[in-house]
Computed example of a mutant assay.
Amino acid sequence: MNHTLKRFTLFICLLPAIKLSAQTNTVSNKVMQDIYQQVKTPYKYGLVMVPDSNSKKMDCPSVFRKRNNWYMTYLVFNGRGYETWLADSKDLLHWKTRGRILSFSDTTQWDSNQKAGYIALQDYKWGGSYQLQKYRDKYWMSYFGGQSRGYEKGLLSISVANTDKDPSTPHEWQRLDHPVISSIDKDVSWWDNHTQYKETVIWDKAKLTGHQFVMYYNANGDSVNKKRGAERIGMAVSDDMLHWQRFGKDPVLNHGDGITGDPYIQKIGDVYVMFYFGAFWKTGTTGVFNRFACSYDLVHWTDWAGDKLIESSEPYDHMFAHKSFVVKYKSVVYHYYCAVNKADQRGIAVATSKDVGKSELNFVAPPVKKKK
Rank of each mutant, 00 (worst) to 15 (best):
residue 7 R to P: 00
residue 10 L to F: 10
residue 19 K to N: 12
residue 24 T to D: 06
residue 26 T to Q: 08
residue 27 V to N: 02
residue 28 S to E: 07
residue 35 I to M: 07
residue 37 Q to G: 01
residue 38 Q to N: 11
residue 41 T to Q: 07
residue 45 Y to C: 05
residue 48 V to M: 04
residue 49 M to F: 09
residue 52 D to R: 11
residue 54 N to S: 08
residue 60 C to I: 15
residue 63 V to Y: 10
residue 64 F to G: 04
residue 69 N to D: 10
residue 71 Y to R: 08
residue 74 Y to K: 06
residue 74 Y to S: 03
residue 79 G to P: 12
residue 79 G to L: 13
residue 79 G to T: 11
residue 84 T to C: 11
residue 89 S to C: 13
residue 89 S to D: 12
residue 89 S to M: 14
residue 91 D to V: 13
residue 91 D to L: 13
residue 96 K to M: 13
residue 97 T to K: 15
residue 98 R to V: 09
residue 98 R to S: 14
residue 102 L to P: 06
residue 102 L to N: 11
residue 104 F to H: 12
residue 105 S to H: 10
residue 105 S to V: 06
residue 106 D to A: 14
residue 107 T to V: 08
residue 109 Q to R: 14
residue 109 Q to N: 10
residue 112 S to F: 01
residue 112 S to Q: 01
residue 113 N to Q: 13
residue 117 G to Y: 07
residue 117 G to L: 09
residue 121 L to P: 02
residue 121 L to Y: 05
residue 126 W to T: 01
residue 127 G to N: 07
residue 128 G to F: 03
residue 137 D to T: 04
residue 137 D to C: 05
residue 140 W to D: 09
residue 143 Y to K: 09
residue 144 F to S: 10
residue 147 Q to F: 10
residue 149 R to G: 02
residue 149 R to T: 14
residue 149 R to E: 15
residue 153 K to W: 10
residue 155 L to F: 06
residue 156 L to D: 00
residue 158 I to R: 02
residue 160 V to G: 02
residue 160 V to P: 00
residue 164 D to R: 09
residue 165 K to L: 12
residue 167 P to R: 09
residue 171 H to F: 05
residue 171 H to S: 04
residue 173 W to N: 02
residue 174 Q to K: 15
residue 177 D to L: 09
residue 178 H to W: 03
residue 178 H to F: 07
residue 180 V to K: 10
residue 181 I to S: 04
residue 183 S to A: 15
residue 183 S to T: 01
residue 185 D to I: 01
residue 185 D to V: 00
residue 187 D to F: 07
residue 189 S to C: 15
residue 189 S to V: 06
residue 194 H to R: 15
residue 196 Q to W: 08
residue 203 W to Y: 14
residue 205 K to Y: 01
residue 205 K to C: 00
residue 206 A to S: 11
residue 212 Q to F: 03
residue 213 F to E: 08
residue 223 S to F: 05
residue 223 S to K: 12
residue 225 N to R: 14
residue 231 E to A: 10
residue 232 R to C: 03
residue 232 R to N: 04
residue 234 G to K: 13
residue 240 D to C: 06
residue 245 Q to W: 01
residue 245 Q to D: 00
residue 249 K to T: 09
residue 250 D to C: 03
residue 254 N to P: 01
residue 255 H to S: 10
residue 256 G to Y: 14
residue 259 I to K: 13
residue 260 T to V: 14
residue 260 T to M: 05
residue 262 D to Y: 09
residue 264 Y to W: 05
residue 265 I to K: 03
residue 267 K to F: 00
residue 279 A to D: 08
residue 280 F to C: 02
residue 283 T to N: 12
residue 284 G to T: 04
residue 287 G to F: 08
residue 291 R to C: 08
residue 292 F to G: 01
residue 293 A to K: 09
residue 300 H to T: 07
residue 302 T to V: 09
residue 303 D to G: 00
residue 305 A to Q: 15
residue 313 S to N: 15
residue 326 V to H: 00
residue 335 H to M: 13
residue 335 H to L: 08
residue 335 H to G: 02
residue 338 C to Y: 02
residue 340 V to K: 11
residue 344 D to E: 12
residue 345 Q to E: 10
residue 349 A to G: 07
residue 350 V to I: 10
residue 352 T to W: 11
residue 354 K to W: 02
residue 356 V to A: 01
residue 364 V to R: 14
residue 365 A to P: 00
residue 365 A to W: 02
residue 368 V to G: 01
residue 368 V to H: 09
residue 371 K to H: 11
residue 372 K to H: 13
